[in-house]
Nucleic acid binder design. Structure first.
Lengths: 334, 334
DNA sequence: GTTTTCGGTGAAAGCGCTTGCATGGCTTTT
DNA sequence: AAAAGCCATGCAAGCGCTTTCACCGAAAAC
């Protein structure tokens, strides 16, 4: 049984108890440097005694700063973005900000509603990993002068600021690496997302320059599941001339393909090599360990928050795109 | 370069344009049934033309309902709770609520600050997967008559409402199952969390009744990483009489142990069996497929939101604990 | 000793909504 | 035909903060 509603102390109660005006208590919270030490001490005591918790709804309304940051991602169940989200949440809570989580769903279907929700809460910023396809929404965000940080990709024309790396470049580097190792018949298992396709395009473009035949490409549904690896392997086992290396859209998929290959009696990488993407923990720990592309997801999160911090201090930020790069990590699987 | 700040239309602007008072526009949003269809149509038009987005900070302040739900979890990087979070986020956004995500960190260290933050934003409810150890905080939540939903476990004395299942029972069932299959020397790899320990205790208690020797128990740090499986396997390989089954605190760990075992030349489950927990996608797709305990995480999320909905309608909710149960799924690994 | 400066504080006007109460016009009731 | 009931709407008083401006006294400058 819930007890009757308790009276929640407000700023004015604290002020009276401390013998000051509400203005001073407000300053104690928002600009402590300008209140006299003795006064601050009295206020602190009053707050403690009453168990006062400021009302950020009221504060946000008055100051026009919600201290809310909307973080919009496709999903979190198996997401490669989770490190980024985690880093952002930690960093943001350090300076009193809160993450409002929005899941845009497959194909970013719910993106418009979530943007709307973020605007309705007067979020101070919106951080995305997906892409805003709706021109109306893009326009509206621009008009509002909203801080919008697009992460993981580096679009040609960011709405505002972008933090990420070039997926084309990843594709190119992987192609070059595999060519260098002497592989000649790669197979690409590409997820349906826009970024995965950029990696594919980068790969194909680079591969063309090697003079080899164009690689086979098969599509894998999003979100990537471990089980999709069976699909991939089934496809592979039916090919007349099987690939010598399978380039997977994610480490999870790569791991699955390796397990399937092994259980079908194939040796990895001798008979078939495998490359992943993301450098998840499993990539390093798998047997054989997985050759993959490392992306510092946490750093993306931190850089994004750093941008927010600079904006908060009135900084202008000339650099619209922050490229955090990536590293190809050669391990046992390829 | 950011454009100058745009003038954001407010309720009053919409009202004037539609030729009604602000009260009516407000009702259009919060209780559409009571505004006349013709009026509603005019309001809708005005909103469209101006691109009006209500200010939920102001709305929340006035109505004393933030439509914000704080969701506090230890981490999301590899979390078994992600399905629950995802389900909650989807369900909540359906009726205009927003998830405020808080990561409490290892050992729920940041729990107090995050509760404070939730209170400061006047969240309508707090949903937890961790445990509030601080008595002061518990008391404060009770006093405020806060809706608090504890999930995944079923504590004996919930702060308010709990949605989950008995981890003790899971432990017991697993013990009974393994005993039934003729295993005699289990080894438990237990994570450091409170719930994992409950499962362990349930297992040990039940195992004792079988008359066998007490199982070896080794601790695994939180958060569980795939790499911890090496630690486990190293321990196992040094035992004079190795276990015939390894009971892992999570499917990820189980998968890792299987891979380590196989790469050390052991056949699973013939030479050593493995049991997981959680029934992640990998459990079913692994070779051999992993015997594990299925928990419907998404359902936990949905039930939690259902409780919120009932509360919103003024329902009293006599049932303090909602047990969603679990299922032991026998597969190839044990 | 007077003027200037400045650190610390208070008074009060909002911020953009919600909602209890009042009102006026209609449809029912008797 | 008057009384009663209802539906749709408006008025206006908040909700709990922030912030501008003004003010006061003490230290600094002259």
């Amino acid at each position: 049984m819930k007890p009757a509603k308790a009276i929640i102390p407000k700023l004015d109660d604290v002020a009276q108890r401390a013998g000051v005006s509400t203005a001073t208590v407000s300053r104690y919270y928002n600009n402590p440097a300008i209140v006299a030490p003795a006064t601050a001490e009295r206020i602190r005591a009053a707050i403690d005694e009453m168990g006062y918790v400021p009302n950020l709804l009221a504060g946000g309304l008055a100051s026009n700063r919600s201290r809310l940051v909307a973080v919009l991602v496709p999903e979190i169940a198996q997401s490669i973005f989770n490190d980024t989200i985690e880093a952002m949440a930690s960093e943001l809570s350090l300076d009193g900000n809160t993450v409002m989580l929005g899941l845009t769903g497959a194909g970013n279907a719910r993106m418009p509603q979530l943007i709307e929700a973020a605007l309705a809460r007067r979020a101070d910023a919106i951080i995305l990993t997906g892409i805003i396809t709706d021109d109306g929404t893009r326009e509206r965000l621009r008009e509002r002068a909203m801080t919008v940080i697009e992460t993981w990709g580096v679009p040609e024309d960011p709405i505002d600021i972008a933090v990420g790396f070039s997926h084309q470049a990843v594709g190119r580097d992987v192609a070059r690496f595999l060519h260098g190792r002497g592989y000649v018949r790669p197979l690409l298992a590409v997820a349906e997302g826009a970024r995965a396709r950029q990696r594919r395009d980068g790969f194909l473009e680079e591969w063309r320059t090697t003079g080899h035949d164009a690689p086979t490409v098969i599509d894998v549904p999003l979100p990537t599941r471990f089980g999709h690896s069976r699909m991939v392997w089934r496809h592979v086992s039916q090919m007349s001339t099987p690939p010598d290396v399978i380039v997977c859209g994610s480490d999870v998929l790569a791991q699955g393909v390796i397990i399937e290959a092994q259980s079908a009696g194939f040796r990895v990488p001798d008979q078939v090599a495998v490359v992943g993407f993301g450098n998840l923990a499993i990539a390093g720990d798998m047997r054989p360990s997985i050759t993959t592309v490392d992306v510092d997801g946490a750093r993306i999160g931190r850089e994004a928050v750093a941008v927010l911090r600079r904006r908060a201090t009135g900084d202008r930020i000339a650099q619209k795109v922050i490229d955090v790069g990536f590293r190809l990590i050669a391990r046992e699987s390829a």
